[in-house]
Design a protein around this nucleic acid. Structure first.
Lengths: 158, 158
DNA sequence: CAGTATCCTGTCCGATACTG
DNA sequence: CAGTATCGGACAGGATACTG
């Protein structure tokens, strides 16, 4: 993850991947969204080595996705809580879940997003909040934003 | 990406990451969505080494995200086109774009999702298609699906 | 229980050189 | 132009042992 450049990292996708691009980071966040807070929980649920877990938790804290909090003084015990940023990342996790279930769940759905009240599975789509229209099909595209450099602008033909 | 297990890979997120978890894969897909089709285009736009690009393109084809097509016989020229699966992955890319712009674009938005007709930037949210309600807040959660193993079920407390 | 410290392997990736 | 071949470095990740 020490790639030097993708358009000098102007791209929001690249910037995000730079911080949570490691395989385990996203899975740890998934588990945190699910409710895990303690080292031991992550370790068991994910089957990750403790040294790797330690590294990944540290960078997630560094990058503002998790907050490390002392929840017991004697003995000193830490818990890892989702920050607002970490919670916001749920949208990405949900999109990944929906995509994975649509494309790689030939043997059935093992994990899904459900409506907590009704208990019914949600059918997730990404929509434009302004119009409520799904951001699929040919109506939407990626395009340079106001802060795009000329380099990006050129490559995106805008 | 040769992690042996995450719940035997039942998780749709893990399954997706298994296929496109490498840093470059997602960026290549991003570029394909943007319109790139040729080796040379990807290479220039991303600043990726040709050997890596070759590997990543091959696995994206293997995993059904891209299709390799001969578009010129003499000289033999290949192009890489998004499959339906590749196009569906846009939802994840859009979610990543929205998240990245919300959290890591302190210097302005360099890349965004826009409505092609109006040219206006889209404000993207993930919603439940059934109700149209945003899948944020406490109303939605990740939960085991019908095909979840007992192992998963146990860990997810359901 | 909640981690840290070591050692090792795999491979992602970058740089470069080369081919039709 | 569209790639393949080869080399080397960095680091993610696995296994295991150890500490308060």
């Amino acid at each position: 993850m020490k790639r030097k450049s993708f358009e000098d990292m102007e791209c929001p996708i690249a910037r995000t991947l730079e911080r949570v691009g490691e395989w385990w980071s996203i899975l740890i966040l998934r588990d945190a969204v699910r409710g895990s807070t303690r080292f031991d929980e992550f370790e068991r649920n994910l089957g990750i080595s403790p040294n790797i877990l330690s590294r990944r938790l540290a960078t997630l804290v560094e990058n503002g996705f998790l907050e490390k909090r002392l929840y017991s003084v004697t003995p000193p015990r830490m818990e890892y809580l989702l920050t607002e940023r970490g919670k916001a990342f749920r949208s990405v996790l949900f999109a990944l879940t929906a995509f994975g279930n649509d494309h790689f769940a030939d043997d059935g759905v093992a994990l899904q997003v459900v409506n907590k009240r009704t208990g019914r599975p949600a059918k997730l789509v990404v929509v434009d909040a302004r119009t409520g229209k799904p951001a699929t099909g040919p109506n939407f595209e990626l395009a340079p934003g106001p802060a795009a450099s000329n380099a990006i602008r050129g490559k995106f033909g805008a």
